[in-house]
Design a protein around this nucleic acid. Structure first.
Lengths: 186, 186
DNA sequence: TCATTCGGTCTACATGTGTTGACTGAAAGG
DNA sequence: CCTTTCAGTCAACACATGTAGACCGAATGA
């Protein structure tokens, strides 16, 4: 087996193991030794290939960017619902690591905040009413709450199929995007 | 100063410092030494008074139980909205520790899950429709998402006043409790 | 007043962690 | 074929942490 190929395989195994463990236990409770063991490798090698635990985490917990969101409020709602349905699908190991580490690891917190803020700005720009930012924020909060409740907390009713969940949550998002409170305070 | 009084004061200072630090940094990143320092005390004393870091955390991160929730769907909605408004108020240091530790500390996770499940069961029991459990679960998820987004993530639009937030989120809860999807699947 | 309790402080230990560096053997390439 | 490179392994170090125990001085109570 050629050397570059071998190296690539090992790096992949380490990265996969890191993603799993960071996602299962968070940053602090995950040790380099545990990652190496699960990857069938060695702590020293992990360090040599990724530099430090921090750098390894940065690579493992990168959040894949959502596609752009634009159009009329109805189209916005449609895209948000599609995106959320995807996030509720099973085994989203990619963002799980960042999500779990978010509360104890400052960099992960920034990662998540940035990802959420980006989507929120896009949505708010298309909504009318002076509470557009609040409404888009609530959309983000609802999304975050659903993902966390399902995948991290494993809350009782949230283990239903994505379709069933969206049958309940979908109308909420539509209401948040299209149903505008009239301008002017109460 | 009498001895019992002195002891009570010191214990209180330690418990307060513990709540703050656990809430700010989570369980793993909070050290006994840091707690002792913030409390103007000593690590050994913390151990002697609380037994272990685990026991101290258990006392510091106990979640105050919500009052019972019951009545017609309209009354349910009203009570849920009142409870959420309270949770969105500023400085909820009590549950913050448990909330932040939830994702890395198994016991804290159980604590939060139990608290949420309890409320969820009460709500679901009063709702009609065969998706009652899902709807009450989504209520819990929305609540969790809002609290986390506001206090932990500090998401952009969520720094509005509780009143403004509830003007947006309130109708969602009403819809989830009163607006029932008709029995029978789609 | 004198012995005792106990809040408080200090030091030390065992352990687990990230990280480093030396070493080994096989692939690479002239 | 011989030298160089490099993936992989092993042992060790420096450090932080939870925890235990010795010690000191003031409040307590007989």
């Amino acid at each position: 087996m050629t050397r570059v190929e071998q190296r690539r395989r090992t790096e992949t195994r380490i990265l996969t193991a890191a993603r799993q463990l960071f996602g299962e236990q968070g940053f602090d409770r995950t040790t380099i030794r545990a990652i190496a063991t699960r990857a069938g490798s060695d702590p020293g090698l992990v360090m040599r290939y990724f530099g430090s635990k921090e750098k390894l985490f940065a690579q493992a917990a990168a959040i894949p960017a959502d596609g752009p969101i634009e159009g009329s409020p109805e189209q916005i709602a449609e895209q948000l619902i599609a995106a959320l349905t995807e996030k509720l699908a099973d085994e989203p190991t990619a963002a799980l690591a960042a999500l779990r580490a978010m509360f104890t690891h400052p960099e992960a917190a920034e990662e998540v905040r940035a990802a959420m803020a980006a989507q929120q700005q896009q949505v708010a720009a298309q909504l009318s009413g002076d509470d557009a930012l609040v409404r888009s924020g609530v959309i983000g909060a609802l999304t975050l709450g659903l993902v966390i409740s399902r995948h991290l907390v494993r809350l009782d009713g949230l283990d239903a199929s994505p379709a069933e969940l969206m049958a309940v949550a979908g109308p909420l998002i539509e209401e948040l995007t299209t149903g505008s409170t009239e301008p002017g305070h109460n």
